[in-house]
Each structure stands twice: as structure tokens, then as C-alpha cells.
Design a protein around this nucleic acid. Structure first.
Length: 627
RNA sequence: GGUCCCGUAGCUCAGUUGGAUAGAGCAACAGCCUUCUAAGCUGUGGGUCUUUGGUUCGAAUCCAAACGGGAUCACCA
């Protein structure tokens, strides 16, 4: 059976052809009829007046008459303000319901796969709220794209090397006293984070006096290069406004930091790491191992997984060859000091550095190399990077460079740029200790789910294990739904209290609707027969509304996949659950005396339940059979 | 300063290629459990869609400018 909207579009085109001759490729504007107006679909007729030569209302009237006369599926029509509202027969809708299924078809292997990179953590500290949004988005987008019929490859690029890791390592070496996750009982990623914070503290103690000296033009702690830079900044600083001063002070702080002995030690450690020093590598492996153990726990709790994990320690040298080729082909240029650049001024951007004068690579070089590696390995059609919007510029440049270098697959690069997560009190700042830790947050939402469930007294019927699993489902549903219902590209405010709400537009509300449906289905066994005659069922608005909403499911998934936007799925599920609750309140299924009608309603409820489960499943939210 | 993103109810958010009287939830107030799970349902109040101009049958949506918020512009990643 064809999709109603598609069928209608073709049938209306036929009608228009009969009335006005060849209408050409003029796309018809068809939309679901708004709630307060009678009808299933609405044809907007303003654009058709040129064809008909009549007023919008008269045009709509003519089309309506002809359409209803020639199509038995059409029930009636009405015209309002130039909108033609068409009602299809209820029988048509029931027949549609009979064959409806929310199940996704198998991915089409002839279509190039879609690669989705997300998570991409640093291994020096535990995951926080920002990572939570990233991970949930990435996992949901992967599910949705897969459900839309494309094969998906989920990729994680772990940033496991660099100066930030060395900071943790150094602090542990200096003051760790051989503390391990086992000896301390601290989760591995949190332990590494603890020493990262410790490093920062010690560094601050060293760097502050240096900064103060620099501010009074005493550069005795700086080397030649740093002094030069500081002099220039200080000059500006003394003549700047307060706003600008803060900014320049930040730059001076960076210089002071790098002049501190501890920072030099960390840099030295990084050099040893790159040189392959055995003891350094060993320490690095050990601490990263702790972090991975910790991440695995958090990933599992979040319900995210990956098909392929890349480590930056294995990819950070890539890209140099690509850059050399670019120089040879003239797309890139080399300065006298040996550094390599690309000129993007024609595109309204700047010159961008791709290789340092000492020949080492920068962030961009690595990303270029990694992109090439993946393209060769997987030959995907699309490469989606789930990365925060503070890197908009980076990805714009990345795509542009690859395109300029002549890689056609670069056209498939898409930066899924999501907004930051703010707290009601303002921005999260690690230095001020206002970051929300991912593990704490998960514990909190589950504890809150438990508390609320106990308050409602819904705890008698199940075992302790079942209840624990249920609380986890409810808590995680609250958290995931709260984050995923917001358009990814928008900055959002995360209120910890609202995130664990269970009433209204929330995950638990949708779970509750589902649990009610399952309860009805369980109780229907032996009471309601599944067979009914389509012709025997009478039209009822809230039944019809539900079917019409079910009909939008696949379209919603497609739109969400095309726009990489899980919020469309979340909002759809909410709308569907709300409509079901309305229906549930208005009609009884099991107590309906007309058995035909009861059977029909049961099917309607069952299909609604399946659809809710599928939609929420795409968001990584599990549905409980009881709650 | 250049570039990019955002601005919808007290708060958090929907509003898919321009379509009819701009919608939900939370919060507030008022109802509904002898009836398939009240984590629910129904109702009331709440809006200059930041502002101004433009495009047209028609603008929250497109264009321009202003205002407000944010990001970014490293031989850091």
C-alpha cells in the first residue's frame, strides 16, 4: 500500500491535469490539516490560481468536486480561505493502520554508508555534561540514520596524547604515591582527573608571581621569545579599555604559565613521550588504561557504543604526506621558514597554518590525515562529525581544504555542530568547579527516579532487581529525553531539577503511556479477539487523529535523518503519547461492548505502543512493560 | 574589529521547503479516581514572535539594518 500523502499527491496531480491540462512540474503544497479544521490533508490553492484563472476559493472548490468524484478513497472536502481540506474515508485509514509498522527496513547496502564520529574525549579527565550531550546526540543520530535505511559506522577518535595528558601524568608522578583505582577506590577517569586538577593548582602557584612580574614589565622569568611577545601585549594592555584588558591579561597568563617550571616539565615529558622513552610510555599506558576502564563504565551506562575507535597517538603523524602533495600541486604554499599554509582569503577566511616551521603537524594536519585515512578505509558517502559549535571554523576550513585538494568525498563532510549546555547559574567552568560530572549526573537521575516512584507508591509488585532496573530506565529516559528534545544546534539550559521531572513533556511521561498500553494488552488476552471487519468501525475523531499521527512516523524519521536532528523524533513521540492518553481517557478498550470496536481499538493501541517503542529506541531510551 | 550561530509566554522549549486564529510543558488557579495504571485527563489566565524597514495574495519563517546574548579568529587540541 502506498503512503497516503504520496498517493494523494499523485491523485491530485491527476485531477489538476484533467481540469487544467498539463500542469508541468509545479509541486503541490499538501500538508496535514490543522487540528481545528475538518479534514485530513490540505491543498494550498493560492499558487494554482494562475493555472485556473479563478479565485483561490473557486479553484479549491473545482478541484475538490473533481477529486471526490473520481476517487472512492475521498470522503468529503471543504474550502476555507483558499485552502482545500480533504477528508479520506475512515475505511481508508483503518486499512492503512492494518498494514502499518514502525519497524525500520534493513539498511540498503548499495547506498554508501554514513560515518558518524562522536564522543572523542580527552583522556585526562572524566566526562561531563557537555560530553553527555555529544554522546547522546551521536548515538541517536546513528540510530536514526540507520533506521532511515543507510548503513552507519560509528567512530570514536580518542584524544589520548598531548600536553594535557602529560599534566595528569606529571602530577601523579610528583604526588600520587602510586595511587591506583584499586588502591583508592576511585574510578579510573576520575583519578586521572584528580591529578589534572592538582597539576593546575600547583601550576597556578608557580605562575601567578610570574604574571605579576610580567604585568610590572619584569620579564626575568621569560625566555627571549616569550619576552618579545609579552612586550607587545603589555604595550597594548596599558592603553586598553577594561574589557580588552581582561582579554590581554589572559594572553599574558598563557605566557606566564608556559614560563613556569612545572609547565616546562610537562612539555619535557611530552618530548620524551614523542621520543618513545620507555618509562614515560609505560606511565602513559597505565594511566590511559585507568581512564578507558572508567569511560567504558560511563559509555555503558549511557548506552553508547562504537564500531571503530581511533587513537590520536596512532593518527597524529598522519596528514604530513597529504600536505606535501598539496604543496607540490600548488594548492598550499611554503614560507621561507619552512612552515606550510593555505590561502583562504578568496573564501573570506584567513591564511591557515598546516605545518609548523619545525615540520611538526598541528591539529588541522592531523584531522586532514585522519579524514583521508577513513575515506580510504570506509568509502562512506557522508562523514558526520558530532562536535561542539566552538569548532565551526575548524570544520569549515577542514572541508574547504580537502575540497581544494581535490577530494570529492569531502563534499560529504558534515559538521553536526551542537550548542553548549549551560546551567541555570550560567556557563559551566571547570576552573570554578561548576562542571556537572557525567557519572554523578547519572547517579542523581536514577536516585531521583527511585524517590519519585516510591512517593507514588508504585513499588509493591516487583522484585528488588526489577525495581532497580526500572529506576535506571526511568532516570535515564528523563535525562536522555531532556537533552535530545532540544534542537542540537541550539544552546540549551540544563536545569538538573527539571531534567528529572516525570510529568509533562518528559521521557517518563512517554514511558508511562507505553506501560499503560502494555498493561491493556496483557489484560486483553482472552477478552478481545484481534479480528474485526474494517467496514464495521465507525468514524471517531480521536481514533482518526491517532492513525494520522502514526502515518507521520516514517516521514519524521526521514526528516530527522536528513537533518541529523533527533529532536524531531523526540517531539514526535511526545505528540503521539499525548494523543494516545487523550484517546485512552475518552474510550475504554477492554470494557467496550462492541467487540469489533474493541478489537480495532486494541490494534490501534498496540501499533501506538510499537511506534512509541521504536521512536524512543532510536533515542536510546528503553521502554518499561510496567511502571 | 572580521566571521559565524542564536533572540518565540514568568521559565524550558516546539513551530520541516513562506500558509488559516503562533503551540506544548513547567510554574499559578479550577475541576476529574467505584470505570483498561491519576507518572494521567479537562479547563482558565499568560504573546508587540527583540526592533525597524523591505519582498508578496500571505512573514515567527526570506532579505537588510539596528539592538541584545554566545562562539571563533594560536606555529594549543
Amino acid at each position: 500500500m502506498m503512503k497516503p500523502e504520496q498517493w494523494l499527491s499523485e491523485a491530485l496531480a491527476k485531477t489538476l491535469n484533467e481540469l487544467y491540462g498539463n500542469i508541468g512540474a509545479n509541486p503541490l503544497v499538501i500538508q496535514p490539516t490543522r487540528k481545528d479544521v475538518e479534514g485530513d490533508f490540505t491543498l494550498v490553492c493560492f499558487g494554482l490560481t494562475k493555472l485556473s484563472g479563478k479565485s483561490p476559493a473557486q479553484t479549491a472548490e473545482d478541484i475538490g468536486v473533481n477529486f471526490c468524484n473520481t476517487n472512492p478513497e475521498a470522503d468529503s472536502f471543504n474550502v476555507a480561505n483558499g485552502f482545500l481540506n480533504i477528508s479520506l474515508t475512515f475505511e481508508f485509514w483503518i486499512t492503512y493502520l492494518n498494514q502499518f509498522s514502525p519497524q525500520a527496513s534493513e539498511p540498503d547496502l548499495n547506498v554508501p554508508p554514513v560515518m558518524i564520529e562522536y564522543s572523542s574525549p580527552n583522556t585526562n579527565k572524566p566526562l561531563h555534561l557537555g560530553h553527555v550531550r555529544n554522546n547522546l546526540l551521536g548515538a541517536a543520530v546513528a540510530n536514526i540514520v540507520s533506521a532511515s535505511g543507510k548503513k552507519v559506522i560509528k567512530v570514536n577518535l580518542v584524544n589520548d596524547r598531548g600536553i594535557h595528558i602529560c599534566k595528569s601524568m606529571l602530577a601523579w608522578q610528583n604526588s600520587g604515591k602510586n595511587e591506583t583505582p584499586e588502591s583508592s577506590g576511585i574510578k579510573g577517569d576520575h583519578l586521572a582527573g584528580k591529578y589534572y586538577v592538582e597539576f593546575d593548582k600547583s601550576l597556578k602557584i608557580q605562575a601567578e608571581p610570574i604574571l605579576n612580574k610580567v604585568l610590572s614589565a619584569d620579564f626575568s622569568d621569560l625566555d627571549e621569545k616569550q619576552s618579545l611577545k609579552a612586550t607587545a601585549i603589555l604595550e597594548k594592555y596599558n592603553t586598553s579599555t577594561d574589557d580588552k584588558k581582561e582579554e590581554l591579561k589572559g594572553e599574558l597568563k598563557l605566557i606566564s604559565n608556559s614560563a613556569a617550571p612545572l609547565m616546562k616539565e610537562a612539555a619535557e615529558m611530552l618530548r620524551r613521550w614523542e621520543a618513545g622513552d620507555e618509562a614515560t610510555i609505560q606511565l602513559w599506558k597505565t594511566m590511559n588504561g585507568w581512564v578507558y576502564q572508567g569511560f567504558d563504565v560511563t559509555y555503558k551506562r549511557l548506552g553508547v557504543s562504537f564500531d571503530k575507535i581511533y587513537y590520536e597517538s596512532e593518527t597524529y603523524l598522519l596528514g604530513k604526506e597529504l600536505v606535501e602533495n598539496g604543496v607540490n600541486s600548488g594548492v598550499l604554499y611554503r614560507k621561507d621558514d619552512g612552515s606550510v599554509w593555505i590561502d583562504l582569503t578568496a573564501e573570506g577566511l584567513d591564511h591557515k597554518l598546516l605545518l609548523r616551521s619545525d615540520g611538526t603537524s598541528v591539529y588541522m594536519t592531523q584531522d586532514l590525515g585522519t579524514a583521508l585515512l577513513r575515506a580510504e578505509e570506509y568509502k562512506a558517502g557522508n562523514y558526520v562529525y558530532v562536535v561542539g559549535n566552538e569548532q565551526d571554523y575548524h570544520f569549515k576550513v577542514l572541508k574547504l581544504i580537502l575540497q581544494k585538494l581535490g577530494y570529492s568525498w569531502a563534499n560529504g563532510i558534515f559538521h553536526l555542530s551542537y550548542g553548549m549546555v549551560d546551567l541555570p547559574t550560567g556557563k559551566m567552568k571547570s576552573r570554578e568547579g561548576t562542571v556537572v560530572d557525567a557519572d554523578d549526573l547519572i547517579d542523581e537521575v536514577i536516585a531521583e527516579a527511585k524517590k519519585k516512584s516510591e512517593e507514588l507508591g508504585k513499588t509493591e509488585t516487583s522484585s528488588a532487581e526489577e525495581l532497580a532496573a526500572l529506576y535506571e530506565r526511568i532516570g535515564m529516559a528523563a535525562l536522555k529525553y531532556f537533552i535530545l528534545k532540544v534542537d542540537p544546534k541550539k544552546r540549551m539550559v540544563f536545569n538538573p531539577e527539571e531534567s528529572i521531572d516525570i510529568n509533562g513533556n518528559t521521557g517518563p511521561f512517554i514511558q508511562y503511556s507505553y506501560a499503560r498500553i502494555q498493561s491493556v494488552i496483557r489484560k486483553s488476552k482472552g477478552v478481545v479477539d484481534n479480528q474485526y471487519d474494517v467496514k464495521q468501525i465507525e468514524n471517531e475523531p480521536s481514533h482518526r487523529t491517532l492513525i494520522r499521527t502514526l502515518e507521520q512516523y516514517h516521514e519524521t524519521i526521514q526528516a530527522a535523518a536528513n537533518g541529523y536532528n533527533p529532536s524531531l523524533v523526540a517531539n514526535y513521540a511526545y505528540e503521539l503519547a499525548k494523543q494516545f492518553n487523550h484517546f485512552y481517557h475518552e474510550f475504554s478498550i477492554l470494557k467496550e461492548e462492541n467487540k469489533q470496536l474493541a478489537a480495532f481499538r486494541l490494534e490501534l493501541a498496540t501499533k501506538t505502543g510499537e511506534t512509541l517503542k521504536c521512536a524512543m529506541g532510536l533515542l536510546g531510551i528503553e521502554m518499561p512493560e510496567k511502571m
